[in-house]
């Protein structure tokens, strides 16, 4: 059973079709396999690592280009992470909660990524 958070997340997930032009409010996250996830900056900033990356002064290439490559994170994990961003944005501060479903097979890998992203 999937929570509401996932449904909301899916609506924003696109694959590979965005081309060059990007609204300033979104950022492209690219998995090890080259899959691109376009998410709202607001959602991406659930991760402290991404937050620093996007707000650090002095213009690193990520800030300039609006995309971040993760050579060590696989597509399914990154997808799950993106879902989590939206879930967190939606529920973490609110009163109502719903459980965030995690498939047992990816638990460890997901935890590693979470540590990396400081989420």
């Amino acid at each position: 059973m999937l929570g509401k958070g996932e449904a909301a997340g899916q609506a924003h997930l696109h694959k590979d079709d965005d081309g060059g032009e990007q609204p300033s409010g979104v950022v492209k996250l690219i998995s090890a396999e080259g899959f691109e996830f376009v998410v709202d900056k607001k959602a991406a900033m659930v991760s402290n690592t991404l937050r620093n990356m996007l707000t650090s002064p002095g213009g690193f290439s990520e800030t300039r280009e609006g995309e971040v490559r993760f050579p060590e994170i696989s597509t399914p994990i990154l997808e799950k992470i993106c879902q989590y961003f939206y879930w967190s944005l939606h529920y973490s501060s609110g009163k109502e909660t719903s459980e965030f479903q995690i498939e047992p097979e990816i638990t460890l890998e997901l935890m590693m990524a979470a540590n990396y992203l400081d989420t």
């Binding site: 992470i81 989590y84 459980e99 965030f100 479903q101 995690i102 498939e103 047992p104 097979e105 638990t107 460890l108 890998e109 997901l110 935890m111 590693m112 990524a113 979470a114 989420t119």
Partner: peptide, 18 residues
């Protein structure tokens, strides 16, 4: 990250990582 199920494949995953 919160949530999670039983960490069944833990040993296997660490191997992969190493």
């Amino acid at each position: 990250m919160s949530g999670g199920g039983p960490p069944r494949k833990r040993n296997f995953k660490i191997d992969v990582f190493k």
